[in-house]
């Protein structure tokens, strides 16, 4: 395997509604910042890959015009996944492993604001038996939270603590959307939103974009003073049928973590759009109390769909760069109730 590192990371501020700029106008400054910070000259970037969703954008082929942000001339080697950008990073990492490129730019963009995300995500379900029921993602997550609370020692108080810690951490993150100091007892006094979830247990609705540059071997060493080396990256999917899964666990995260070598982690950036999912993910990855979780505030502070997973990898790299971590973990999830999960383990020199 070639040594590949994250060498730069840029993101927009996450906002409830970006109604001034179009996707390309949002992406141009982010892509330029990622390229400049990377130290890899733009014309030398060997591969490009993006992640986004047509249903989120409300238009077929919505990724096509996004290519306009790249200045794809002369023509470039480029691909796109209809997935969170974290999987675009995986595809780019694979290309580099093949020796087809020595560096890659990965970007993703997602705006939930044009549509109603709770309605849009219903269309992610089996169209014959599940989607017609109209089960929305918050209700499905509530089913999962209930399963967790009933079958383990985890409590609603722990969920509130997760929410409070993430939003407190997010105060130091200029790109976060929902930040502040919250009192756990006061949170627990709030009414249920979809029981057992309260509003604070749910991610905000966000618009945003992220770009990352990765590079191999000497290209990374030459470009960056402190490459965040990808020591392992793996992703796994579970059954789509919720009834076939133990929702209180995330076996796909455990497996991906095992394959990616998720041990001795100092900082973990977990893509958990619901507070109870952070508890499930910590259990799945056996992250102890000594592991710092989501210094960025995680998805509970900013959750641009299709972007938030890639952002976790960027934030994990930040933890390497700012010295918080020697080994950091970035995680991304997709699908209802943590159906699909990716784990990326980063390490400093």
């Amino acid at each position: 395997m070639r040594d590949v590192a994250v060498v730069s990371f840029a993101q927009t501020k996450n906002v409830r509604r970006e109604n001034r700029r179009n996707e390309v106008e949002m992406l141009i400054p982010v892509v330029q910042e990622a390229v400049e910070k990377s130290g890899v000259p733009k014309q030398e970037i060997g591969f490009y890959c993006s992640g986004s969703s047509d249903y989120l954008a409300g238009q077929s082929f919505s990724f096509v015009m996004a290519v306009d942000c790249l200045g794809a001339w002369p023509p470039i080697a480029e691909s796109h996944v209809e997935m969170d950008g974290a999987w675009a990073l995986y595809e780019a990492w694979i290309k580099i492993q093949c020796g087809e490129a020595d560096s890659a730019l990965i970007f993703s963009f997602g705006r939930s604001s044009p549509g109603v995300i709770r309605e849009t995500l219903v269309l992610q379900l089996d169209p014959y038996t599940l989607a017609p029921l109209g089960a929305d993602p918050v209700s499905l997550a509530a089913l999962q939270a209930r399963a967790l609370l009933e079958s383990t020692d985890h409590s609603e108080r722990e969920m509130a603590e997760v929410a409070a810690r993430n939003r407190s951490n997010a105060k130091n993150n200029p790109y976060a959307q929902l930040t502040g100091d919250f009192d756990v007892d006061e949170l627990l006094a709030e009414p249920y939103f979809v029981s057992p979830l309260r509003k604070h247990d749910c991610a905000p609705i966000s618009d945003g974009a992220t770009a990352i540059v990765i590079a191999a071997d000497d290209v990374a060493r030459k470009a960056s003073k402190k490459p965040a080396w990808i020591r392992g990256i793996d992703h796994r999917i579970e059954s789509h049928q919720l009834g076939l899964r133990d929702l209180s666990q995330s076996t796909s995260t455990s497996l991906a973590g095992e394959k990616a070598g998720a041990i001795d982690i100092d900082v973990a950036e977990l893509h958990a759009p619901f507070s109870h999912q952070e508890l499930i993910l910590r259990d799945a990855l056996s992250l102890g109390d000594d592991v710092k979780i989501n210094p960025s505030g995680g998805a509970l502070a900013a959750n641009s769909v299709m972007v938030a997973g890639l952002t976790r990898i960027g934030e994990a790299a930040n933890a390497i760069w700012d010295g918080t971590a020697r080994r950091a973990l970035g995680h991304a999830t997709s699908g209802p109730c943590l159906q699909q999960n990716l784990v990326c383990v980063l390490e400093g020199e």
Binding site: N22, P114, G115, V122, L123, A131
Partner: peptide
């Protein structure tokens, strides 16, 4: 299974 989604598009600055 009819489905209906409404979107509020943003043209952008230009």
């Amino acid at each position: 299974t009819p489905s209906r989604l409404e979107y509020d598009f943003t043209p952008g600055i230009a």
